[in-house]
Nucleic acid binder design. Structure first.
Length: 330
DNA sequence: ATGGTTTTTACTGCGTC
DNA sequence: GACGCGGTAAAAACCAT
């Protein structure tokens, strides 16, 4: 019915097809030569990317990310390598600064004299002061703490925290903070990161663990996304499915069917403009029905934070899309 | 600010356990 | 009768302009 669901979100656009059936894909990203269509070869010795067919140089003066030395066996590699622990964006100084251990022991594990102990204590104090010297660093330290706290409360994996940290860092670098709260930007960063990582949390869930209100969150989020040109696609309903299914203690069968339903609905193009969470919730309900599993709309509405009405509306559409898409053997 | 969508709220009637 | 479900109307929220 609601075929006129053209809300200009950057959702899937099945349109844009002209009358003449020309090439489906005009610009393929990196793997093919723009001239002759041959495969590209990266030559890191010369720092060039060239076409294997016609020899066209697509990119040059690239930076060779490899080491500048050569090693002929593992031992030599160990010797020449100068890299240490990986840096991480999750610490405000990327884990690069020095820390003075809290134990008053020297390198051999012997206790220090009282004079030495005093000295170390003074050094610790100063080291800490320098480490978090200016306001930006302190700001970061607090924000990353917030991100970490919220991420663990939401059970988000490390890569999401890492991404959130990067986003926050960028926001700080671009001077987006003045006039906005640290918590606000930190929360927005986490929300964006979770979505980018395909592990989205709904606004409701984020709001619950954040110290800021929904209005500030959405406003800050929009602002950050716009200013940093972040590319955040609408969340994929399927990415909500497994979590809800396990919250409802349903089996894998339901999860699979729910994702199928989402798939066929996507093909029929009835997803655009609708809340992904609602679709996921409805898909689970419909899938449970098909699998003879017992779940009430109320229970789903509870774990997904979606009204029962929305579940009803969506799941009818889903079943309809499935029957049109058909080709699914029972 | 406005208008077009979607989602929520609130209420109703129906069938079943 | 309580409960799950389906439907509807009106209010609220959301988003692009």
């Amino acid at each position: 019915m609601s075929e006129t669901s053209t809300r200009s979100r950057p959702t899937e656009r099945t349109s844009e097809r002209k009358t003449d059936e020309k090439v489906e894909h005009e610009e393929t990203k990196t793997d093919v030569c723009p001239e002759c269509g041959g495969g590209l070869v990266t030559d890191s010795e010369r720092g060039e990317t060239v076409c294997g067919e016609c020899g066209l140089v697509v990119e040059e003066d690239e930076i060779d990310p490899g080491p500048e030395w050569r090693a002929f066996d593992a031992a030599e590699k160990d010797q020449k390598s100068r890299v240490g622990a990986p840096t991480t964006n999750m610490m405000h100084d990327k884990g690069l600064s020095t820390n003075i251990g809290w134990q008053d022991k020297d390198a051999y594990g012997n206790s220090l004299s009282s004079r030495q102990r005093e000295k170390m204590q003074r050094l610790r104090t100063w080291n800490e002061r320098f480490r978090t010297r200016d306001s930006k660093e302190r700001n970061l330290k607090q924000a990353l703490g917030e991100i970490d706290r919220m991420a663990s409360a939401l059970g988000l994996p490390e890569n999401v925290r890492e991404t959130a940290s990067v986003i926050y860092r960028r926001a700080l670098d671009e001077n987006l903070l003045p006039g906005r709260s640290i918590e606000g930007v930190a929360t927005a960063s986490l929300y964006a990161a979770a979505r980018q990582a395909g592990n989205p949390r709904s606004l409701d869930e984020i709001e619950r663990v954040s110290r800021i209100g929904r209005m500030e969150l959405t406003r800050t989020y929009r602002y950050v996304v716009r200013e940093l040109n972040l590319e955040v696609q609408p969340a994929d309903p399927e990415s909500y499915v497994p979590r809800f299914v396990s919250d409802l203690e349903l089996n894998e069968e339901v999860s699979r069917r729910a994702r199928e339903l989402v798939d066929s609905a996507r093909k029929e193009g009835v997803l655009s403009g609708k809340s992904p969470v609602g679709i996921a919730a409805a898909a689970i309900y419909a899938a449970a029905l098909l699998s003879n599993e017992r779940v009430t709309q109320g229970e789903i509405s509870e774990v997904a934070d979606i009204s029962e009405v929305t579940i009803r509306n969506r799941y009818k559409e889903l079943l309809e899309a499935k029957s049109v898409d058909g080709t699914r053997v029972q």
